[in-house]
Amino acid sequence: MRIVLSGGGTGGHIYPALAIGKQVMEEEPGSSILYIGSPKGLESRIVPAQGISFEAVEITGFKRKLSYDNVRTVMRFLKGVSRSKQLLRDFRPDVVVGTGGYVCGPVLYAAAKLGIPTLIHEQNAVAGLTNQFLSRYADSVAVSFEEALPQFRKSRSAVYTGNPCATNVVRADKDQGFAHLGIPSGSRIVLLVGGSRGAKAINDVMVDMAPLIGRLPDVHFVFVTGESYYEQTTSRIREILPQQMPATQQMPATLQVLPYLHHMPEVLAASSLVVGRSGASSLAEITALGIPSILIPSPNVTNNHQEANARTLADAGAAEMIAERDLNGALLFERITRIMNQSDIQSQMGTAALSLGMPNSAAMIVSELRRIIAM
């Protein structure tokens, strides 16, 4: 299979595309992959590091109000379509996949105009503007949340596949997660993470909650701050911790504060409870593993889609949701304590999460690609 992947701007668009590419290579080892992204997006660094061919197309998004910038955006879009057509003619793909972000616009539009089979993947419960626009041209739309299907009624085909990031994480070895953290296998872990770049609101609540963790002495807490917040957050935690700690001990034995987790799938697999944002890829991973969660949706995203994502899990009993405006250390620790001290609640939430998980998502999407190629 010759496949073009396109998705950019955030990891939430990039990693699902890479998961689809990985599944294609596993099922058809002789396949060829080209990734088309933005020269300034994260994909320009992440994709080449994976050994995948990368080409760039210049594009920006539309402003939500009348602006001269939108005229420039139209011109960039048209140039992007022309550039994309040339790249597609040169590569000659069997299929083109878009996973969201502005760069998908010219790439998928060009593919449709050239008669190349196309599929778009929508990660969130509330569809993004680019995918809504592209759905009228795509041969198939795959969605992560079943609730998103009605938003694509006018598309040629819409299928519920889940998020392909789920497929990667179910293969993770949780014993390696314990080993990476340097703690005994079987330890109970509460993982707090604000995303790959961190989130100030979640880091602030880590600081507020740090003096309380001694009340759960058999639970190991892992705080992942994001690299840009790490020094400030660790300094604040050290200042606020009880003064009776030994001078030589900078952090409680049951607390690790880390800037980044390079083995996130393994640590996730080892975790008993996850506290964090409700990006689509993260939710796909925790449901595939059946992990209870406390979700704090980011209020700073388009269409408030993280709250819609979180409500899907909360309504199913798989998660608890706390609005960022209500968040504080005492409230969060109370929720964590209730879940960790009541095995029946933890079990029920885990079972509900697992019922939402779709660990075969990547394979389902590749099967759909074969279907539209054969049309």
Rank of each mutant, 00 (worst) to 15 (best):
R2H: 08
R2C: 05
I3P: 02
V4H: 02
L5E: 05
G7V: 09
G9S: 05
G12N: 02
H13S: 10
H13D: 06
I14H: 07
I20D: 02
I20C: 10
E26V: 12
E26I: 12
E26H: 13
E27L: 15
E28Q: 14
P29I: 01
P29L: 03
I33W: 10
G37D: 09
G41F: 12
L42R: 12
E43Q: 10
R45I: 14
V47N: 11
A49H: 11
A49V: 08
Q50P: 05
G51F: 04
I59M: 14
G61L: 05
F62A: 05
F62G: 03
K63M: 08
K63P: 03
K65N: 14
F77H: 03
L78D: 10
G80W: 01
R83V: 14
V96D: 07
V97Y: 01
G98Q: 05
G100D: 00
C104T: 14
L108G: 08
A110P: 06
A112H: 07
G115K: 00
I116V: 12
H121E: 02
G128L: 04
Q132V: 08
L134C: 08
V141I: 13
S144P: 14
E147V: 14
L149A: 11
R156D: 05
T161A: 02
G162K: 10
C165L: 12
V169D: 02
R171A: 15
R171H: 10
Q176L: 15
A179V: 06
S185Q: 11
L191K: 04
G195I: 10
G198H: 03
V205P: 01
M209S: 07
A210G: 09
L212G: 07
G214V: 01
P217Q: 08
F221C: 11
V224F: 01
V224D: 01
T225W: 08
E231F: 06
T233W: 13
S235V: 08
I237R: 00
R238Q: 15
E239W: 02
I240F: 06
L241Y: 12
M251F: 08
P252V: 06
L255Y: 06
L255S: 01
Y260E: 09
H263P: 05
H263T: 15
P265S: 05
L268G: 09
S272Q: 13
S278T: 11
G279C: 01
S282N: 13
S282H: 00
T287F: 04
I291P: 03
I294K: 04
L295A: 07
P297L: 03
P299Q: 04
N300I: 08
N300T: 14
T302S: 14
H305C: 03
A308C: 11
A316V: 07
A318R: 04
E324P: 03
D326I: 06
L327V: 11
L327N: 05
R335D: 10
I336L: 13
R338E: 15
R338F: 00
S343F: 03
Q348P: 03
A353D: 05
N360W: 03
N360T: 15
A362S: 12
S367E: 14
L369T: 07
R371G: 07
